[in-house]
Simulated assay, not measured.
Amino acid sequence: MSAPVSTVSDAVHAALATVDDPEIRRPITDLGMVRSAVVGDDGVVRVELLLTVAGCPLKEKLRADITAAVGAVPGVTGVEIEFGVMSPEQRQSLQAKLRGGAGAAGGEPVIPFAQPGSRTRVYAVASGKGGVGKSSVTVNLAAALAARGLSVGVVDADIYGHSVPRMLGTEARPTRVEDMIMPPESHGVKVISIGMFTAGNAAVVWRGPMLHRALQQFLADVYWGDLDVLLLDLPPGTGDVAISLAQLLPNAEILVVTTPQAAAAEVAERAGAIALQTHQRVVGVIENMSWLELPDGSRMEVFGAGGGATVAESLTQTIGAQVPLLGQIPLDTRVREAGDAGTPIVLAEPAAPAAKALGAVADRLAVRRESLLGKPLGLKPAGR
């Protein structure tokens, strides 16, 4: 005897509630995407699904997930899916739901990570000069943190020298829902980059105000969801983007990347010392390309030694607060090879010495900020 249609229908709706939208990472039932789901007398379930935008790049992923979830319900003999598209009003309603009804006075976009109740740790990865492996460090830390179960996002804020999408192995483009941008995800990391908005390998020729606006859009218009950690790959030096970051995200913590070379260390000190002017915290220093391990087990210090420790000590004295040396990353051609292949070395070869060193740094950064907003502090008035 077959199960009553009403019982099967309830089970189908419960199954649909287990399917997440691949971009928004929330159940399609919560997002108002399921227009109808009808169980026929023949056991075939006909689902009408509303996509956020026409030509949704993850349409087939949704089809496969829905078919698998609903097809597993006892009594269902088949699944047929008809795709439609949300109306502008429905998209506006979805946007309001995702943003929790939060708006901005005077039309100024709201940056969730700058709000008092934000629990997201924001790390700005900075370097004094180019060529020290700042982007490689950023993507490997992001991938390592995501592999540890954290929700992680990366903003490729190096507008002129953007390279993060390649290193994370994604060529995907963001999807727009009204004035909200859905970031692509790779290796469990949500990522946004100016390279996703330009044709081919076109150069970006912008001055300060446009750089500021781009960074503002990446932080406010992109739907990041509830992140544990947000990493920003900054351009080298202490220019426009570093200043804009301090204005837009005053609570961001600076992570300084250097090499052991004395010349690089001197420039890195300047990049870290900008925290004095912006009143931001320097969370630590990472020394990259520290040494090359030779086949006989010895180490060749290609770029000298001690640069990272020197930067950490100098910044500790300059800022007046402890700035630790978080880690030393060995020079390894596999870091470059993995980045070119689009799979960070912490995932491609986790046993490699460089991967282990990067993983150890990630462990020190994998702390979620706890907000005190709305929490009682247990304070009592003193007796007279």
Score class of each variant (00 low, 15 high):
A146Q: 10
E287A: 01
L145N: 02
S2N: 11
T175A: 03
T175R: 03
S9R: 14
T259V: 05
E349N: 06
V125K: 10
V110G: 03
P250N: 01
R369L: 13
I243A: 00
D20N: 15
A142R: 08
A14T: 15
A263I: 15
L16E: 09
T18C: 09
G43C: 05
A382N: 04
R121P: 01
E80W: 00
N251I: 06
G32M: 04
G101V: 11
A321C: 02
R369K: 10
V34Y: 05
D296S: 09
V85H: 06
E185C: 08
T258E: 04
V70T: 04
P109C: 02
S193L: 09
T29W: 09
I111M: 09
I159H: 01
V257S: 04
G320D: 03
L231N: 02
Q322G: 03
W224D: 07
L294F: 03
G117M: 13
G55E: 08
G133W: 04
S244N: 06
T343Y: 13
A114K: 13
H279P: 01
E23K: 02
V110C: 00
T310D: 13
G71D: 11
A262S: 08
P109I: 09
G106W: 12
L62H: 08
P236A: 04
T120K: 06
V164E: 06
A104N: 14
E313F: 00
P183N: 08
V39S: 02
E89D: 15
V53C: 02
G297Q: 09
A366R: 13
P88K: 07
L49D: 04
R364A: 13
I345M: 03
A355E: 02
Q317L: 09
P27A: 02
R207H: 11
A309E: 15
S87H: 08
A265N: 06
V47E: 07
E301I: 01
S314Q: 13
M86H: 10
A312E: 08
V39C: 04
L49N: 09
G153E: 14
T343R: 15
P88A: 01
L219I: 08
A264T: 10
T138N: 14
E60T: 08
K97T: 13
R25M: 00
Q247K: 14
L211Y: 02
V45S: 06
G75S: 03
V39I: 01
K380G: 00
G101H: 13
A305E: 15
P235I: 07
A37N: 07
L358W: 14
